[in-house]
Design a protein around this nucleic acid. Sequence first.
DNA 1: CAGTGGTCTAGACCACACA
DNA 2: GTGTGGTCTAGACCACTGC
Lengths: 233, 233
Amino acid sequence: MLTGDKISFRDVKNEILGRIHAREWPPGSLMPGEIELAEEFGCARATVNRAMRELAEEGIIDRKRKAGTRVNIAPVRHAKFEIPLVRTEIESLGASYRYAFISRSIDLAPDWLRARICLGPDDQVLHIECMHYANNAPFQFEDRWINITAAPKSMTADFSAISPNEWLVAELPFSEAEISFSASAVDERLARFLSMYHGEPHFLSERVTWLKDLPITFAQMSYGRGYRMTTRY
Amino acid sequence: MLTGDKISFRDVKNEILGRIHAREWPPGSLMPGEIELAEEFGCARATVNRAMRELAEEGIIDRKRKAGTRVNIAPVRHAKFEIPLVRTEIESLGASYRYAFISRSIDLAPDWLRARICLGPDDQVLHIECMHYANNAPFQFEDRWINITAAPKSMTADFSAISPNEWLVAELPFSEAEISFSASAVDERLARFLSMYHGEPHFLSERVTWLKDLPITFAQMSYGRGYRMTTRY
DNA sequence: CAGTGGTCTAGACCACACA
DNA sequence: GTGTGGTCTAGACCACTGC
């Protein structure tokens, strides 16, 4: 367990993980306190604290004041997915990126959108459609709605040159986002843009972002054939 | 900014975030060092360190020794998804859970599986198929392959009573997992189990887990109609 | 009320990466 | 080399919560 002369919080973490895996501290059981472990490992309590805090963040253990620390029975695993810019995503695949603008319009927010992101009946939205290509093959169709009240500057942005995705990240910080993934069938129009068949399954990502309770944007990203989202943990 | 008499790492974090949002430290710029900030905020360096470390973990800033800390130009956002037991997932929706065993067999690992998770040509696998229901409606079809070499105990488990999902979580720790999501069309057999139409899109989740380079299990989870995976960040 | 984790401090040394 | 972040320490006080 010694990697050097001093005990690192990583050593402590690994040792604890090992004991949990070895069922030395079985799921549901109470682990020793920080002070006790610090003495056993010959390190400061802060070191044990950091190790255990990280394990708690990862969902391996559960900590409560006064009650102590327990090994989680069903460790709720967390998978972390990176949410990059489409361009970054494509370029990191080693492919060339191309952006294509499709349409732009300004409308009263349609009812379904008002309901979805809590807009008033008189709020106007900027509606953009565009495509993202990887090596000139259709990669993603972006259907973007921007709340003009929250982002008046979007009116003057030139979305024929820069994608709304990229413009928003650069211009508008957000405090909160909701993202969801599902599978859906492409309709006839979408099928043409993505070079797919009408009714073919596609991976759909929907995103809403807010800046302090003020809805900024709603987007539907439809991915082309064969897209998969992968992560390790 | 003061929440009490002492400066918390949360205060520091919020203050830094505020300045980044206000473009006081624009994207790509070099931020002051830890010592300087600690002096400005009137707290210890460790406090600033923790604040900045968390911001770095969240992808907001980028830290390098000697080079200093910079605001990320394109903050790579991370979305965290919980990966619970199917049962837990269903119950937390307020629905009743039911498990149904379908089939069990022991075979030489098929070629596609050997290639997928790096098995030898003579390795045997336990193949289980089962269903998970929410309020008696089809929720998920689980197609599970277990590496017998890595998990000999699985041979004697009673998978007609407990789902492989649950058995594995309880019995076999893993050190690493890969998970991926995609959209696919249901084939004829799957359609019957999920009460869907042949060719209908469904959300597909694939998972591989390892224990120190030793592949343990591969699973395909096919979700029923309308499933969506959602998170906030 | 008392015990456990949560956090802050002040100081120290180390490791890495840039010049 | 030298400066910046990375980490450990020893000690202290606080806050929550179960008894």
